[in-house]
Protein backbone atom coordinates (compact mmCIF):
# COMPACT_ATOMS: atom_id res chain seq x y z
CA UNK A 1 0.00 0.00 0.00
CA UNK A 2 1.39 3.43 -0.86
CA UNK A 3 -0.15 6.84 -0.65
CA UNK A 4 -0.29 8.99 -3.73
CA UNK A 5 1.69 12.16 -3.58
CA UNK A 6 -0.11 14.77 -5.61
CA UNK A 7 2.23 16.12 -8.24
CA UNK A 8 2.00 19.60 -9.70
CA UNK A 9 0.64 18.03 -12.87
CA UNK A 10 0.35 20.34 -15.84
CA UNK A 11 0.96 23.49 -13.84
CA UNK A 12 3.78 25.26 -15.62
CA UNK A 13 5.42 28.58 -15.01
CA UNK A 14 3.77 31.45 -16.87
CA UNK A 15 4.85 31.75 -20.44
CA UNK A 16 6.04 28.14 -20.70
CA UNK A 17 4.19 25.26 -22.30
CA UNK A 18 4.37 21.75 -20.88
CA UNK A 19 5.48 19.51 -23.70
CA UNK A 20 6.39 16.36 -21.81
CA UNK A 21 5.44 14.90 -18.45
CA UNK A 22 5.23 11.62 -16.68
CA UNK A 23 1.91 9.81 -17.03
CA UNK A 24 -0.27 10.24 -13.94
CA UNK A 25 -0.59 6.44 -13.78
CA UNK A 26 3.11 6.21 -12.91
CA UNK A 27 4.67 6.67 -9.50
CA UNK A 28 7.77 8.69 -8.64
CA UNK A 29 9.78 5.56 -7.89
CA UNK A 30 13.01 5.52 -9.96
CA UNK A 31 13.30 2.47 -12.24
CA UNK A 32 15.78 -0.21 -11.20
CA UNK A 33 16.36 -1.28 -14.80
CA UNK A 34 19.81 -1.60 -16.40
CA UNK A 35 21.20 1.01 -18.81
CA UNK A 36 19.84 0.48 -22.30
CA UNK A 37 16.93 -1.68 -21.17
CA UNK A 38 13.55 -0.83 -22.68
CA UNK A 39 11.37 -1.95 -19.76
CA UNK A 40 11.28 1.71 -18.74
CA UNK A 41 10.03 2.72 -22.18
CA UNK A 42 7.41 -0.02 -22.17
CA UNK A 43 6.30 0.87 -18.63
CA UNK A 44 5.85 4.46 -19.72
CA UNK A 45 3.76 3.37 -22.68
CA UNK A 46 1.56 1.34 -20.31
CA UNK A 47 1.17 4.42 -18.12
CA UNK A 48 0.25 6.49 -21.17
CA UNK A 49 -2.46 3.99 -22.08
CA UNK A 50 -4.00 4.15 -18.62
CA UNK A 51 -4.00 7.96 -18.77
CA UNK A 52 -5.20 8.19 -22.34
CA UNK A 53 -8.18 5.89 -21.79
CA UNK A 54 -8.79 7.30 -18.29
CA UNK A 55 -8.56 3.83 -16.73
CA UNK A 56 -6.73 4.63 -13.48
CA UNK A 57 -9.77 4.09 -11.25
CA UNK A 58 -10.67 0.72 -12.71
CA UNK A 59 -7.37 -0.89 -13.66
CA UNK A 60 -5.97 -4.03 -12.08
CA UNK A 61 -2.54 -4.86 -13.43
CA UNK A 62 -0.81 -8.21 -13.01
CA UNK A 63 2.96 -8.23 -12.83
CA UNK A 64 5.24 -11.14 -13.57
CA UNK A 65 8.28 -12.78 -12.10
CA UNK A 66 11.29 -11.60 -14.03
CA UNK A 67 12.90 -8.20 -14.55
CA UNK A 68 9.51 -6.47 -14.22
CA UNK A 69 8.79 -8.15 -10.87
CA UNK A 70 8.70 -4.74 -9.16
CA UNK A 71 6.35 -3.23 -11.75
CA UNK A 72 3.77 -2.62 -9.00
CA UNK A 73 6.11 -0.02 -7.54
CA UNK A 74 6.14 2.03 -10.72
CA UNK A 75 2.40 2.37 -11.21
CA UNK A 76 -0.29 4.09 -9.20
CA UNK A 77 -3.18 1.71 -9.90
CA UNK A 78 -4.03 -1.56 -8.13
CA UNK A 79 -1.82 -4.52 -8.95
CA UNK A 80 -1.44 -8.20 -8.21
CA UNK A 81 1.95 -9.88 -8.18
CA UNK A 82 1.65 -13.26 -9.88
CA UNK A 83 3.91 -16.26 -9.52
CA UNK A 84 6.24 -17.09 -12.40
CA UNK A 85 4.25 -17.65 -15.59
CA UNK A 86 0.78 -17.53 -14.02
CA UNK A 87 -0.14 -13.93 -14.79
CA UNK A 88 -2.77 -14.87 -17.42
CA UNK A 89 -4.48 -17.20 -14.90
CA UNK A 90 -4.38 -14.52 -12.19
CA UNK A 91 -5.73 -11.96 -14.65
CA UNK A 92 -8.46 -14.44 -15.62
CA UNK A 93 -9.48 -14.71 -11.96
CA UNK A 94 -9.72 -10.93 -11.63
CA UNK A 95 -11.43 -10.29 -14.97
CA UNK A 96 -14.04 -13.06 -14.61
CA UNK A 97 -15.06 -11.68 -11.23
CA UNK A 98 -14.84 -7.99 -12.15
CA UNK A 99 -15.61 -7.84 -15.86
CA UNK A 100 -15.89 -4.04 -15.91
CA UNK A 101 -12.29 -3.54 -14.77
CA UNK A 102 -9.41 -3.09 -17.17
CA UNK A 103 -7.11 -6.04 -16.52
CA UNK A 104 -3.70 -6.46 -18.10
CA UNK A 105 -0.61 -8.56 -17.58
CA UNK A 106 2.95 -7.42 -18.12
CA UNK A 107 5.20 -10.39 -18.86
CA UNK A 108 8.65 -11.23 -20.12
CA UNK A 109 9.53 -14.07 -22.47
CA UNK A 110 10.71 -16.48 -19.77
CA UNK A 111 7.49 -15.87 -17.86
CA UNK A 112 5.09 -15.94 -20.82
CA UNK A 113 6.72 -18.31 -23.30
CA UNK A 114 8.60 -20.75 -21.07
CA UNK A 115 7.08 -21.55 -17.69
CA UNK A 116 3.76 -19.87 -18.43
CA UNK A 117 3.08 -21.13 -21.94
CA UNK A 118 0.09 -23.23 -20.87
CA UNK A 119 -1.56 -20.28 -19.16
CA UNK A 120 -0.79 -18.04 -22.15
CA UNK A 121 -2.25 -20.42 -24.72
CA UNK A 122 -5.35 -21.26 -22.69
CA UNK A 123 -6.15 -17.66 -21.82
CA UNK A 124 -5.82 -16.86 -25.54
CA UNK A 125 -7.87 -19.90 -26.55
CA UNK A 126 -10.67 -18.93 -24.15
CA UNK A 127 -10.67 -15.48 -25.67
CA UNK A 128 -10.10 -14.15 -22.16
CA UNK A 129 -10.90 -10.45 -22.37
CA UNK A 130 -7.54 -9.30 -21.03
CA UNK A 131 -4.61 -7.39 -22.50
CA UNK A 132 -1.08 -8.80 -22.43
CA UNK A 133 1.94 -6.54 -22.71
CA UNK A 134 4.73 -8.93 -23.62
CA UNK A 135 8.41 -8.02 -23.50
CA UNK A 136 10.62 -10.32 -25.59
CA UNK A 137 14.32 -9.77 -25.05
CA UNK A 138 15.34 -13.33 -25.84
CA UNK A 139 16.93 -14.05 -22.50
CA UNK A 140 16.33 -14.56 -18.76
CA UNK A 141 17.47 -11.14 -17.57
CA UNK A 142 16.68 -11.16 -13.86
CA UNK A 143 18.27 -14.52 -13.11
CA UNK A 144 21.53 -13.71 -14.88
CA UNK A 145 21.30 -14.18 -18.63
CA UNK A 146 20.24 -17.79 -19.13
CA UNK A 147 18.81 -19.09 -22.38
CA UNK A 148 15.13 -18.42 -23.04
CA UNK A 149 12.81 -20.27 -25.44
CA UNK A 150 13.04 -17.08 -27.52
CA UNK A 151 16.85 -16.95 -27.65
CA UNK A 152 18.17 -16.88 -31.22
CA UNK A 153 20.10 -19.78 -32.74
CA UNK A 154 23.75 -19.22 -31.94
CA UNK A 155 22.98 -16.75 -29.16
CA UNK A 156 25.47 -17.04 -26.31
CA UNK A 157 23.87 -17.16 -22.89
CA UNK A 158 25.05 -18.42 -19.49
CA UNK A 159 23.33 -21.77 -20.17
CA UNK A 160 24.25 -21.95 -23.87
CA UNK A 161 27.80 -20.76 -23.64
CA UNK A 162 28.83 -21.95 -27.09
CA UNK A 163 25.69 -20.44 -28.60
CA UNK A 164 22.17 -21.88 -28.74
CA UNK A 165 22.31 -25.21 -30.57
CA UNK A 166 19.02 -26.14 -32.27
CA UNK A 167 19.94 -29.84 -32.13
CA UNK A 168 20.05 -29.52 -28.38
CA UNK A 169 17.33 -27.01 -27.52
CA UNK A 170 15.29 -26.54 -30.67
CA UNK A 171 14.30 -23.35 -32.42
CA UNK A 172 13.05 -20.09 -30.89
CA UNK A 173 9.32 -20.02 -30.04
CA UNK A 174 7.46 -17.37 -32.00
CA UNK A 175 4.62 -16.41 -29.73
CA UNK A 176 2.56 -14.31 -32.15
CA UNK A 177 2.75 -16.95 -34.87
CA UNK A 178 1.89 -19.65 -32.31
CA UNK A 179 -1.17 -17.83 -31.01
CA UNK A 180 -2.37 -16.84 -34.46
CA UNK A 181 -4.25 -20.09 -34.93
CA UNK A 182 -6.50 -19.52 -31.92
CA UNK A 183 -9.98 -18.18 -32.57
CA UNK A 184 -10.18 -16.47 -29.17
CA UNK A 185 -7.44 -14.01 -30.04
CA UNK A 186 -8.68 -10.54 -30.98
CA UNK A 187 -5.40 -8.75 -31.41
CA UNK A 188 -1.79 -9.79 -31.96
CA UNK A 189 1.06 -7.53 -32.92
CA UNK A 190 4.84 -7.43 -32.67
CA UNK A 191 7.11 -4.41 -32.76
CA UNK A 192 10.77 -3.74 -31.97
CA UNK A 193 11.42 -1.00 -29.43
CA UNK A 194 14.42 0.09 -31.41
CA UNK A 195 13.67 3.65 -32.57
CA UNK A 196 11.35 6.55 -31.80
CA UNK A 197 9.36 5.60 -34.88
CA UNK A 198 8.97 2.02 -33.70
CA UNK A 199 8.03 3.18 -30.21
CA UNK A 200 5.26 5.24 -31.78
CA UNK A 201 4.13 2.12 -33.65
CA UNK A 202 4.21 0.23 -30.39
CA UNK A 203 1.97 2.89 -28.82
CA UNK A 204 -0.46 2.46 -31.71
CA UNK A 205 -0.52 -1.32 -31.26
CA UNK A 206 -0.97 -0.99 -27.50
CA UNK A 207 -3.86 1.40 -28.07
CA UNK A 208 -5.49 -1.25 -30.26
CA UNK A 209 -4.88 -3.93 -27.63
CA UNK A 210 -6.48 -1.79 -24.92
CA UNK A 211 -9.43 -1.02 -27.14
CA UNK A 212 -9.98 -4.72 -27.78
CA UNK A 213 -10.60 -5.27 -24.10
CA UNK A 214 -12.72 -2.15 -23.66
CA UNK A 215 -14.85 -3.24 -26.62
CA UNK A 216 -15.07 -6.82 -25.29
CA UNK A 217 -13.36 -8.40 -28.30
CA UNK A 218 -11.20 -10.91 -26.42
CA UNK A 219 -7.56 -11.70 -25.88
CA UNK A 220 -5.07 -9.07 -27.04
CA UNK A 221 -1.28 -9.25 -26.97
CA UNK A 222 1.47 -6.85 -28.00
CA UNK A 223 4.97 -8.29 -28.22
CA UNK A 224 7.73 -5.71 -27.81
CA UNK A 225 11.15 -6.86 -29.04
CA UNK A 226 13.47 -5.35 -26.47
CA UNK A 227 17.20 -5.01 -25.95
CA UNK A 228 18.97 -6.53 -22.96
CA UNK A 229 22.45 -5.04 -23.42
CA UNK A 230 23.79 -6.24 -20.09
CA UNK A 231 22.91 -9.90 -20.58
CA UNK A 232 23.58 -9.79 -24.30
CA UNK A 233 27.07 -8.42 -23.52
CA UNK A 234 26.66 -5.40 -25.80
CA UNK A 235 26.57 -1.65 -25.55
CA UNK A 236 23.04 -0.21 -25.61
CA UNK A 237 23.65 1.05 -29.13
CA UNK A 238 24.89 -2.30 -30.40
CA UNK A 239 21.91 -3.99 -28.77
CA UNK A 240 19.52 -1.78 -30.73
CA UNK A 241 21.38 -2.60 -33.94
CA UNK A 242 21.21 -6.30 -33.04
CA UNK A 243 17.43 -6.08 -32.80
CA UNK A 244 17.10 -4.34 -36.15
CA UNK A 245 19.58 -6.62 -37.91
CA UNK A 246 19.11 -10.04 -36.31
CA UNK A 247 16.10 -10.29 -34.03
CA UNK A 248 13.48 -8.97 -36.47
CA UNK A 249 14.57 -11.58 -39.04
CA UNK A 250 13.45 -14.34 -36.68
CA UNK A 251 10.58 -12.37 -35.17
CA UNK A 252 9.07 -10.33 -38.01
CA UNK A 253 7.19 -7.25 -36.80
CA UNK A 254 3.64 -6.33 -37.73
CA UNK A 255 0.02 -6.91 -36.87
CA UNK A 256 -0.91 -10.60 -36.95
CA UNK A 257 -4.55 -10.34 -35.93
CA UNK A 258 -6.75 -7.26 -35.61
CA UNK A 259 -10.46 -7.78 -34.99
CA UNK A 260 -11.23 -4.13 -34.29
CA UNK A 261 -13.86 -2.88 -36.71
CA UNK A 262 -11.89 0.09 -38.01
Amino acid sequence: MSTIIERPGTQTPEGLNCVFEKPRAMSDKPFHYCPGCSHGTYHRLVGEMIDEFDLMSRTVGVCPVGCAVFAYEYFEFDMVEASHGRAPAVATGVKRCLPDRFVFTYQGDGDLASIGMAETIHAAARGENITVFFVNNGIFGMTGGQMAPTSLIGQKTTTSQAGRDPMLTGQPIKVCELLSSLDGVAYLARVPLSSPKNIKTCRKYMRNAVRCQLEGKGFALVEALSPCPVQWGMTPGDAIDYIDEKVVKVFPPGEFINKLND
Partner: peptide
Protein backbone atom coordinates in the same frame (compact mmCIF):
# COMPACT_ATOMS: atom_id res chain seq x y z
CA UNK B 1 -3.77 -18.87 -9.68
CA UNK B 2 -7.24 -17.93 -10.89
CA UNK B 3 -8.34 -18.31 -7.26
CA UNK B 4 -5.43 -16.06 -6.30
CA UNK B 5 -6.56 -13.38 -8.77
CA UNK B 6 -10.21 -13.56 -7.68
CA UNK B 7 -9.24 -13.52 -3.99
CA UNK B 8 -6.91 -10.54 -4.57
Amino acid sequence: NMVYGAAA
